[in-house]
Every structure is written in C-alpha cells, then in structure tokens.
Computed example of a mutant assay.
Amino acid sequence: MSPTEFRGQIARLTAHIAGRPLDAALDAWLNAEHGAGSATYRELKAACEAGVAEGWLCDREGGGIRYGRIFKPAADLHGFSVDVVDMQDIAGPHHTHPNGEIDLIMPVEGEARFDGRPAGWLVCPPGSAHRPTVTQGRALVLYLLPEGRIDFTR
C-alpha cells in the first residue's frame, strides 16, 4: 500500500458522497453500503493499518494521540481532506465541524468504540461539536472533512 493507492481508495469513496448532506441519512447509507464487514471497510482498514505500520499515516503525536493529515482538500477527493488518528482509551481535544465531519471507526484492539459507536461510519452534521473519545480499546479513525474545516476549541 502506498499513499497514492490510498488516495485512490478515498477518491472512489468520496465520488459517492460528494454533494450529499452530512446527516443521518448519509450515516445510514454509509453503514449499509460501506460499513463494517463490507469490502470498502476491509480495504480502507487494511490501508490505514499498513500506513501506520509503514509510518506515512499518524506520523505525529500529541497528548497521547497519534495523528496526521495525509491529504489536504482537493478536487480529486471531491473537496474533502483526509486525516487518520490512532487513539486508545483517550479523549481528544474539543472541536467543532463547520461543514460537518465523516468518520470511519476501525477498532484494532479490544471492542473499541469512538464516541460510543462501534466499527463503521459516524456522520457529524455541520455545526456539530465533540471531544472525540475512544473507549474499550484502540481504534484508528479516518476523518473526511469538507474543505478541511475543523475549529479546535481554546
């Protein structure tokens, strides 16, 4: 797996979600069509695990969280940026999502949950806020941010 191959995987997915509202309907659709157990989920999880192992994903660390923005928003990614975090039984910094956020939750140890959700997708609507929290183990979480927008709370 390479960053270029990973970008291709993301671009194929974002082609299906571009222009859709970030809401409960998108959350349900992603989990039904690309959720845990699907080929898309397995491929993205394998790519993220390889990227972490090879050092091109989650190449920074702060406050006990490994993280990194692998791709800035771009036309081929349909305006989404791509970040991946590696978290184990920890809460991250509070932030808001001006344009919403789409998260792929990939447990790697235990029965890890992200904001209480198991493996699969979580769609946060525009204007939502949270303190991203992983409990019950370790998870990789892929973030798709429209226009790369995220505002950390001071």
Rank of each mutant, 00 (worst) to 15 (best):
G137V: 13
R138F: 07
A25Q: 15
Y67R: 00
D115F: 02
R60Q: 14
G35Y: 10
R69N: 04
R66F: 07
A46F: 05
R60H: 13
I70Q: 00
P146R: 09
L122A: 05
I90E: 00
R131W: 01
T133D: 03
I70T: 02
G35L: 03
V84I: 12
G35R: 06
H78E: 07
V52S: 03
P73M: 03
A129R: 14
Q88E: 14
W121T: 11
E54I: 01
D83L: 13
C58Y: 03
T40C: 15
V123S: 00
G19I: 13
L77F: 10
E54P: 02
A91M: 01
E101R: 14
V141M: 07
M106L: 05
C58T: 05
V85M: 08
A47C: 10
A39I: 09
C48Q: 12
E54W: 02
G120A: 03
L140V: 11
I70L: 04
D27Q: 10
A32V: 09
P118C: 09
G127L: 05
A74E: 00
D76V: 00
P146N: 12
R138L: 09
S38W: 04
G19K: 13
L57T: 10
V123C: 03
Y67F: 07
L26Q: 12
L144C: 12
G55R: 06
A18I: 08
G92Y: 09
G148V: 09
N99T: 08
F71N: 04
R60K: 15
C58I: 06
A28F: 00
G62P: 01
G148F: 10
A74S: 02
H97K: 11
W121F: 11
H130M: 11
Y67C: 02
M87K: 12
G79D: 02
R66Q: 07
H94G: 03
G100K: 08
D27V: 02
E61S: 06
M106G: 04
R117T: 11
P98D: 07
N99E: 05
Y143R: 06
G19Q: 14
Q136N: 15
M87Y: 09
G127Y: 02
A36M: 04
R66E: 01
H95L: 11
E147K: 15
R117D: 06
R20C: 11
L77S: 10
S38R: 08
E49N: 11
A74Q: 06
G116E: 05
G116N: 12
I17E: 06
A129I: 07
R138Q: 13
A36C: 10
C58V: 14
G51H: 00
A24K: 15
A53Q: 10
Y41C: 06
G127K: 02
P132I: 13
D27C: 11
N99F: 03
P125D: 08
I105H: 00
G63M: 00
H95K: 13
Q136P: 00
V82W: 07
S128V: 06
G79T: 01
L30S: 14
N31G: 10
D59I: 04
G37K: 11
M87P: 02
A28W: 01
H94Y: 00
G116Q: 07
A36P: 01
L144K: 10
G68K: 01
I90V: 15
E101P: 01
G35C: 08
G51S: 08
G148L: 10
K72Q: 08
L144I: 14
P98I: 05
V82E: 08
D23P: 13
P125T: 12
N99S: 04
I105M: 04
